[in-house]
């Protein structure tokens, strides 16, 4: 009896492990080894600075298998959540060995806004060494389907006569500065209401507690199914999932805003290693199964290597700094 039960307990632990190749040894600070030239030679840890189950986490777990195929070594996905990502990124730039065996997911605009707004985020935006940016989810403006707003102009016109509330995911997030940018460009009076996540904000619109949502295209798709109206998307061009929805630019507001996801390494990582990783992520993006699932999730696949990514970050940082300054949200 005793023996069987203990065996059952062990069987349980093993059952949880079935999917995972047993070759990987997930040590945080494994001894240095291997030449840069034949990188990678051993298991790579791919850490997400967010809770499991979120969009970034699911993306990483989708990437895991094609990434292993592209790199030829095992890849272990773990989480290091805290501070909206700041704890993880702070560790990436200060404590992680720059040997390419520890990668971390990184999101724009989080890595730009946290150091600007918090003062002591624990890292600086330019310390994040980008290997690749692989996908984006643009902002979308969503309102109630049976409400008075049929176009962005309706919404703005109303917001000029009374205070309207716009829900969204988190403070100093893509949704947050998206709402700020809209208020700035239009001169409308909009109060941004942060919720604890993308999904957590949706009931507020469905239940009529907010006048609109600044959310992502992924969530907008869900909301459209439930009879909500998508007024605009904040992308450069119209997006395939909403062919009839105008961009904010078409509506006369020069706003391109959303979340961009990528992967970063510590600052001193050799260029050769960064290039190997960039190649691997490029190949992951070509994986048909991965593309299909990522598209199902509503992600827009991007292929920006280290240099393009760094350039992009510089642009966005200047924009964000300007915007936060106007709303007096810059730290110090």
């Amino acid at each position: 009896m005793h023996n069987t039960s203990r065996r059952a307990f062990l069987a349980g632990l093993t059952a949880a492990a079935l999917p995972l190749p047993l070759a990987g040894c997930a040590t945080r600070s494994a001894p240095a080894g291997g030449d840069v030239a034949d990188y990678p030679t051993r298991s790579i840890t791919y850490t997400l600075p967010f809770d499991p189950g979120g969009e970034s986490d699911i993306t990483a777990r989708l990437q895991q298998q094609p990434l292993e195929e592209a790199l030829g070594v095992s890849v272990v996905v773990t989480n290091r959540p805290g501070g909206g990502g700041a704890v993880g990124w702070s560790e990436l730039v200060h404590q992680t060995r720059p040997d390419g065996y520890s990668l971390m997911g990184a999101n724009v605009p989080h890595v730009i806004l946290q150091p600007l707004a918090r003062g002591q985020a624990g890292y600086e935006t330019d310390q994040i060494n980008w290997a690749y940016i692989f996908q984006s989810t643009p902002n979308a403006l969503v309102v109630s389907g049976d409400g008075p707003f049929r176009t962005v102009d309706d919404f703005i016109a109303k917001a000029k006569t009374e205070k309207l509330s716009l829900g969204g995911s988190g403070s100093y997030s893509a949704n947050h500065i998206g709402a700020l940018a809209l208020a700035q460009e239009s001169g409308a009076d909009v109060t941004y209401v942060p919720f604890s996540g993308t999904a957590a904000a949706s009931p507020a619109l469905l239940g009529g507690q907010v006048d609109g949502l600044m959310t992502y295209n992924t969530e907008a798709l869900q909301l459209q199914d439930k009879g909500m109206r998508v007024l605009a998307v904040a992308s450069e061009e119209r997006v395939p999932e909403f062919p009839d929805v105008p961009t904010l630019r078409e509506s006369g507001f020069d706003i391109v805003e959303g979340a961009w996801r990528g992967v970063a390494v510590p600052p001193e990582t050799p260029d050769r290693v960064v290039d190997v990783l960039a190649d691997a992520f490029a190949r992951v993006n070509q994986d048909r199964e991965f593309r299909k699932k990522a598209t199902n999730l509503g992600f827009h696949i991007l292929d920006w290597g280290p240099r393009e990514s760094a350039e992009f970050i510089r642009e966005r940082t200047a924009l964000a700094k300007d915007l936060l300054r106007r709303f007096d949200l810059l730290h110090g």
Partner: peptide, 19 residues
């Protein structure tokens, strides 16, 4: 063994021993 090999928790390891 259970946490690092099965559950993929990157436990801190001893630099000397490697585990």
């Amino acid at each position: 063994a259970v946490f690092t090999r099965v559950l993929y928790v990157p436990l801190p390891v001893s630099v000397l021993l490697g585990i």
